[in-house]
Design a protein around this nucleic acid. Structure first.
Length: 951
RNA sequence: GCGGGUGUGGUGAAAUUGGUAGACACGCUAGACUUAGGAUCUAGUGCUGCAAGGCUUGGGGGUUCGAGUCCCUCCACCCGCACCA
């Protein structure tokens, strides 16, 4: 049999599908293992070589676990709802439902091509009503629960209502937005609408009016993590702050648990750091400042440095702080309004520039310093954010850089309260130094002063100890068509009513015109018959954001077709949680945060047995593309464009002033990504056809070879050569199907793994793939000769072959376990080279070798395995165990006594019988004497101290 | 600015607990077979030196018999957050 990978792959793909090889069931007799990939959203572009990197790694891991006696759940599905799918549909004019399904078909074919061991019977897609009815169901649960801080869990809202009926809002320790306190009596006389408004402050899914990230171009509101540098992450459109009525999720209620949970999960430090940073916990205090008018109103500020309170010379409020309008003095009204106008017109991209914004205005009002009783001015400024802390600060110009800059800018008083003379290098914000000008705090260290002032503030009822988080509640409304409809409706008064869970799914209606409306309403709002089923009932026309469906999909895989529950108790008790999750780091604060939040919520409700959904998480790197460009001279040649081969830049002594680089589609480039990447005559023809404006261009290069700038070694070219994302824009997308056509799926898989450590990003470089291809041919040639005859015998193997095999078994086991696939592949190469060198043909060696390689190269190993006469798939076989007897170390370390004194270690070859070495009693001269007659490769003797001998 | 990470040949990278640094592969050089080679095989390939040898894991310092690995310090690069009080 000749090596014909495409025939082999086609054959086994079919057989695996027919026999449902990778189908799994709960099996209490076997330990479970759940290997999960982040499911893709099926965009129109299809998969490129970067996508499968993580999938291949997890597939190898899953296959290995399966062969090691675990019952492995390894599913795949599609994140079909959300902006990307809809945006694609908008671009192409095809209905999202159709384009999504078409794309899924294409993705599926591409995935199958790579030989993954997914159990496709468990596929989920988030746009399937049978799936999203449970997304809606979880939403309703969030709506029906609040977070009890004392019990530290979510509880039904009915308990809260009961509490209000009995105690009013007093003693209610729950996560909520600020609202005026009320008594039992007040609660009892409230109207339904008033009660509902109160409850909205507690519900975990709630409606609120507030500033949101509004993206005009996309016609929708975006979550904080969907906004990067003031523009939308998708499309790069400007985002402004707009006030709208929106659904939101009270993720802040879980901030502390989301933070603490990270201590018990096996994620990379950097990822945990990103999440910690996003949650942004800081300890400090709320301090109340009376207004000068003394009308009972106070301004509550948040500070992490209460010790500097004596240095506080003014207060600053956010521009949309609740009290702003009340306190502005008539004299300052015009100034303040002018400032607010200025500030509102500013788009958020001022932030991106990284400038400090010191704009602000004095309200004309004063507050009373709670301790010194001094009158201090109240200002409004951009640098105070309304949604962090209390939206108000006590400015301490001597202890905070921004306050300091602001004070200078507006000529406000600066009082030094920290003596830092003992700490030369301390910056203004360091917690070092001794208090001064601070009454009873004078002379205390910063640490001690914080404790002392906190005690004082609490005793005097001027403030409380508080923890603030940067984490914001998650906006949950999208003015879009392609998403889950909210299972709620509003009555004539605008009150929210839940749909009955038995009526779910609340299906997304069909629509012809799904373009966003410029007025900020969802396209569904135009569907009057649907949106207003009766005079006193209107439906929510916004839809849920992309992360809704992806926040719990890993649970659905456990029991994907259950019509009665989102997941059965039996299934979730067996599968528990995800043991290994592989995916991109780009989901660090979006998907991974929301999933953990939903999971903890479902845990509180008793639906899932674990607090954390993903025990171990591995972030695969990105496969980057090289941008190949042709050099276009600025100076034209007889009126036509003039390209030169990149190697001529140096020859001609050109500088970057003289030319520009024009990106070339990589399909035209020979030796893509290599130092000698170039266009041949055909390539030039294709280029001209592609970019017709260069039809008459002159192409100047030796032998008609036009070198491109893909070279990363060349001096001047280096600055032109770019490595970055693979994207359509740069025409550098490598399609896995093309690679597989040329080299086969096994080679593709192994090469992706061989590129380097899985977490690292690296450019796709076609050069190295030949090495893997060569290896696979060598591997094949252990089993078949050139004529294609089976050459495996039943002879007794050579000893060296056992050694090579068992070393490889051991290393492969260890390497896969620690996610080091490149080193495992290196070991295969060593083993295969060794077996070829000695001409090993024994099945005793070659049969287990197939099993070791099988997780990496599933197709050709399956083919070879059958040749041994096995009826069952190699992927159902048991991974061979290594035998220690063949793995005697080449050297062993023994403790010895050097010169009768110091205990140290000595490295000796194993050929020296162990009993010859009298443990710790052997002195240096004895060893040297014993070694006489041995072949000594290397000896390092440090007299009186240490011997290192290699025999 | 804050937080996290990374620095090893011409390249991608190994070195799991401190123990012969550079495995494995790419590339390159020479040779063999060839009409030819972008096929295959063989040998060589960290730097330096004719050699013996010397030097070598971003720089400097330290601990240790022994450091790529541990500690201190400086430098460079990458990623995340960024007016968070």
């Amino acid at each position: 049999m000749k090596l014909d990978y495409s025939t082999i792959a086609a054959k086994w793909k079919e057989i695996w599908a027919e026999t449902h090889l990778y189908k799994v069931h709960e099996n209490p007799d076997l330990p479970k293992f759940y290997v999960l990939d982040m499911f893709p959203y099926p965009s129109g572009a299809g998969l490129h070589v970067g996508h499968p990197l993580g999938y291949v790694a997890s597939d190898i891991y899953a296959r290995h676990k399966r062969m090691s006696g675990f019952n492995v759940l390894h599913p795949m599905g599609y994140d079909a709802f959300g902006l990307p799918a809809e945006q694609y549909a908008l671009d192409t004019g095809v209905h999202p439902a159709k384009s999504t399904s078409d794309n899924i078909t294409r993705y599926r074919a591409q995935l199958d091509n790579i030989g993954f061991s997914f159990d496709w019977s468990r596929q989920v897609r988030t746009d399937d009503p049978a799936y999203y009815r449970w997304t809606q169901w979880i939403f309703l649960n969030l709506y029906q629960h609040y977070y009890d801080i004392t019990k530290d869990k979510a509880l039904p809202i009915s308990g809260l209502i009961a509490h209000f009926g009995e105690y009013g809002s007093l003693q209610m320790n729950a996560a909520c937005a600020d609202h005026p306190p009320f008594s039992t009596e007040e609660w009892k006389v409230m109207s339904a609408a008033q009660k509902e408004n109160i409850l909205m402050n507690y519900r975990l899914a709630y409606r609120k009016k507030g500033y949101v990230n509004w993206c005009e171009a996309l016609g929708t509101v975006l979550a904080n993590d969907e906004v990067k540098d003031g523009v939308s992450e998708r499309g790069g459109h400007p985002v402004i702050q707009k006030e709208m009525m929106q659904w939101a999720l009270r993720v802040t209620a879980y901030a502390e648990r989301l933070l603490n949970g990270m201590d018990v999960i096996d994620w990379s430090e950097s990822l945990k750091a990103i999440q910690r940073n996003w949650i942004g916990r800081s300890e400090g205090a709320f301090i109340e400042f009376q207004l000068e008018q003394n009308n009972g109103q106070t301004i509550k500020v948040f500070t992490t440095r209460p010790d500097t309170i004596f240095g506080s010379t003014f207060l600053v409020l956010a521009k949309d702080h609740a009290l702003v309008n009340e306190i502005i003095s008539p004299a300052q009204k015009a100034t303040v309004e002018a400032y607010i106008d200025r500030s509102k017109s500013k788009v958020s991209d001022v932030k991106a520039a990284g400038e400090k914004n010191l704009d602000g205005a004095w309200t004309g009002a004063y507050a009373i310093h709670p301790i010194t009783k001094n009158k201090i001015q109240i200002w409004i400024a951009d640098y105070v954010l309304s949604d962090y802390g209390t939206g108000a600060i006590m400015a301490v110009p001597c202890g905070d850089e921004r306050d300091h800059a602001f004070a200078k800018q507006h000529q406000l008083e600066i009082v030094e309260v920290i003596d830092r003379s003992a700490f030369e290098n301390a910056s203004i914000e360091d917690k070092q130094g001794t208090l001064m000008n601070s009454d009873f705090l004078n002379g205390l260290s910063v640490e001690k002063a914080i404790q002392a002032i906190l005690k004082f503030l609490v005793e005097q009822q001027l403030g409380t100890k508080q923890i603030a988080y940067k984490l914001r509640d998650a906006n949950f409304s999208r003015q879009r068509y392609w998403g889950e409809p909210f299972p709620v409706y509003y009555d004539a008064e605008g009150l929210v009513h839940e749909m009955d869970t038995s009526s779910l799914p609340h299906e997304l209606p069909d629509l012809d015109d799904f373009k966003p409306s410029p007025d900020g309403r969802s396209p569904l709002a135009r569907l009057d018959a649907w949106a207003r089923p009766s005079a006193d009932r209107s439906l929510e026309t916004d839809t849920m954001p992309g992360y809704a469906g992806s926040s719990w999909y890993f649970l659905r895989y456990m029991d994907p077709n259950n019509p009665n529950e989102f997941v059965s108790k039996k299934a979730v008790d067996y599968w528990q949680d995800v043991d290994l999750y592989v995916g991109g780091v780009e989901h660090a604060v979006g998907h991974l945060m929301y999933s953990r939040f939903w999971h903890k919520f479902l845990y509180d409700l008793g639906y899932v047995p674990t607090q954390e959904p993903f025990k171990k998480l591995v972030n695969q790197g990105m496969i980057q593309g090289v941008v190949e460009s042709l050099i276009l001279l600025k100076e034209r040649h007889e009126g036509n464009a003039h390209f030169i081969s990149a190697d001529l830049i140096k020859t001609k002594g050109l500088t970057s002033e003289d030319f520009s680089a024009i990106p070339v589609h990589i399909d035209f480039v020979s030796a893509y990504g290599q130092p000698n990447s170039h266009l041949t005559g055909d390539g030039i023809q294709s280029f001209i056809q592609w970019r017709s404006e260069y039809g008459n261009a002159l192409f100047e290069g030796a032998d008609g070879k036009m070198y491109t700038t893909g070279d990363s070694n060349g001096a001047i070219i280096e600055t032109l050569s770019e490595v970055g994302k693979m994207s359509k824009r740069y025409h550098n997308v490598v399609n896995p199907d093309d690679v597989i056509d040329k080299y086969g799926a096994d080679c593709f898989r192994m090469y992706e793994m061989f590129l380097g450590p899985i977490e690292q990003s690296k450019p796709w470089d076609t050069m190295g793939i030949e090495g893997i291809s060569k290896f696979l041919r060598k591997f094949w040639s252990l089993y078949f000769n050139e004529e294609g005859d089976w050459i495996v015998t039943n002879d007794v193997p050579q000893e060296s072959s056992y050694k090579a095999l068992h070393a490889t078994i051991k290393k492969t086991n260890e390497d896969i376990e620690r996610f080091s696939f490149n080193t495992a592949i290196s070991q295969f190469m060593i083993c295969v080279n060794e077996l070829r060198k000695t001409g090993e043909q024994s099945s005793k060696i070659l049969e287990p070798l197939v099993q070791i390689v099988a997780p990496f190269a599933p197709f050709i190993t399956e083919e070879i395995w059958q040749q041994f006469g096995h009826k069952e798939s190699v992927h159902k076989s048991t991974f061979p165990a290594h035998d220690e007897k063949w793995l005697v170390n080449t050297s062993k370390t023994y403790p010895v006594c050097i010169n009768g004194k110091k205990r140290s270690e000595i490295t000796l070859a194993i050929d020296i019988p162990e009993e010859e070495i009298k443990s710790s009693a052997m002195a240096l001269p004895e060893i040297q004497k014993w070694l006489e007659g041995q072949v000594i490769k290397k000896t390092i003797v440090i007299p009186g101290k240490m011997v290192n001998i290699v025999v």
